[in-house]
Structure formats: C-alpha cells, structure tokens
C-alpha cells in the first residue's frame, strides 16, 4: 500500500508539475483577456474559516443591515426565512418586528382576492421583483441573482497546485472572498485599449467577464452602524460577505462542531482497532 501510494503521488505530481509549469508561461493579452476573473480575489481572514470556525454574530447583524438597506433593492433571498434570523442573535420579538417591516403578498382570501399583509417570522424574504422576467426587464436584461446561496455558488478556480493545498488548509471561503473582492473591486481603470460595453462597469474581479451590469453598489458611509464598526466600503463588504455565507450555509457551526467530535472519536477508534489488529495478527507472519 505504501509503495502504491508513494508511487501514485510521485508520478502524478511529477507529471502535473511539469505541465503546470509549462502552462504558467501562457500569454494573456491585457486589453482583451479571455479568462476571467482578470484578477484573483485576495484571501481574507474570516471568523468562520478553519476547523473551529464560528460566525461572528455582530458581523452577521451588520451584514444583514447592509443586505436590507442596499442589496435587497435588487437581489432576492428567497430561501432564507425570517425565523432563521434568530441564529444571528436576535430575540423572537426582534425577529417578529423585523419581519413586520416587510409586506408579504398572501391569499387568496375567502373572496378569492390576493391581499397584502405584514410579514411574520415564518415568511421568507420577499423578492424585490414580482418575477424573474420583471427583474430582468428592470435591470437591462439580466436578472440580479438570488442571494440565498450566492456564497456557495461563486468560487474562482484556484488552479494547480493550490487546489491540492486547499484540502489540507481547509480553504472553503472562496465565495465570501469573491464577494468581498468584487464589492471592493470597482474604481479600477481598465487597461489601455480595453473596450467596456455600454451600460456595464469594469471590475477585474468579476468572474464572468471584464465588466458587469451592476454599478458600484455601495460606498463609504452609506450604511450606519450602531456598534461603532468602521463605516467603510471594506468593512461593509466583509460584513455582507459573512452574512451571505451564513445565508448559504446556516449550519456551518454545527457542522464543524459535530465534525470535531466525529474526528476525535474516529481517531481513537482507529487506534483501538489497530491494537486489536496487531494483537490478532501477532503470531502470524504475513
């Protein structure tokens, strides 16, 4: 087994390294890039990264505020229910009050009519547009994506050999890194000669092209924080990225907590089974 594994590793890595090295030399035209994003996102530090990561509740609350006051005017979050906001540290009453800020369409009532009522905790975040076609029509043909899973649905390819190291460093924050990079990535000047289509905005961090339809959505001082956190674009981006990670993976903390217990058990159990195995085979040459 050991020989097989080392053989596998050496050969595989050897071949891939050679090839990877050769490919790194590939030329890209600055003005007309063909691979996106033009710039890879920076790796930020997140409280929920690593084997013992947990969400920073204050940060999630700030992120929610950014989502509510900025993003939610265009981006829906259909899969997140108000009731789950209790996980952000809000009390039941606070969640009720928060839900009641929204108007929810319900019905039909006994007369067969649809009606509007105040939101309750079991409702989901309402969409800013009645349907996808309306969302596309109001946004130059491209419907703004839903935000429920955006932090898991966007990840910039890491490339070889980083994607192998990622297994050992447990890098799983590509989504928030990307969102943060995108939000702070406006205001760059496109390289000489690059043509930016009308109505789009250059952003070297955008995953699917050189520019995107969304203009810079947020800037310094736009959202008021009441916990004294800096009201800067960078902080807003961090907070909303963390919030969107929570929205996409609400059970992350439970997952890592359970994981630690499972790992401890399995390692101890493996040790025991190994001892038993050694005892059983003690007098048999093999």
């Amino acid at each position: 087994m050991k020989t097989i594994l080392t053989g596998l590793a050496t050969l595989g890595f050897g071949v891939m390294l050679t090839v990877g090295g050769a490919l790194a030399q590939e030329q890209h035209s600055e003005a007309e890039p063909t691979h996106f994003p033009i710039e890879k996102p920076h790796q930020e530090s997140w409280s929920f990264a690593g084997p013992f990561g947990t969400y920073d509740k204050g940060q999630l609350q700030r992120g929610l505020k950014v989502y509510k006051e900025v993003c939610s005017s265009c981006h829906s979050m259909k899969l997140v229910a108000f009731r789950s906001l209790e996980e952000l540290g809000y009390t039941e009453d606070q969640v009720k009050a928060l839900a009641a800020e929204y108007d929810i369409q319900d019905g039909p009532n006994a007369d067969g009519e649809m009606f509007t009522r105040k939101g309750i905790p079991t409702d989901y975040f309402p969409s800013p547009f009645p349907n996808d076609a309306a969302a596309a029509a109001s946004n130059g043909g491209a419907a703004p994506p839903d935000f429920s899973l955006i932090a898991k649905a966007r990840a910039v390819e890491r490339g070889f050999p980083t994607f192998i190291f990622d297994i050992f460093t447990q890098y799983a924050e590509a989504g928030p890194d990307y969102i943060h990079a995108l939000l702070t990535g406006y205001d760059h000047t496109p390289p000489e000669g690059m043509e930016i289509p009308e109505g789009t905005h250059y952003n070297p961090y955008f995953i699917a092209g050189k520019s995107l339809a969304m203009p810079k959505p947020i800037d310094d001082g736009q959202v008021t924080y009441d916990d004294g956190s800096p009201e800067t674009l960078d902080q807003y981006s961090r907070d909303v990225s963390a919030f969107l990670m929570w929205a996409a993976e609400p059970h992350l903390e439970a997952r890592k907590r359970t994981g630690f217990r499972v790992m401890v058990f399995l390692v101890l159990f493996a040790g025991l089974v190994y001892l038993v195995k050694r005892r059983v085979w003690a007098n048999v040459a093999h």
Partner: peptide
C-alpha cells in the same frame, strides 16, 4: 479486523470531507 481497521481510516478521510470540505468535490 484488518478490513475493519482500513475502514475506520477510510471513514476519517470521508468525515474530513463531510465536515470540513463538503463542497470541495462539487461544483459551485
């Protein structure tokens, strides 16, 4: 017992992906 030991080792690998890298092998 030998198979059992190998299984537990394999479970460690399996659990590592489930709990720490659950989306690593999938596509965003």
């Amino acid at each position: 017992v030998k198979d059992g030991f190998a299984m537990v080792l394999f479970f460690i690998l399996f659990a590592y992906f489930i709990f720490y890298m659950p989306n690593y092998l999938g596509h965003p």
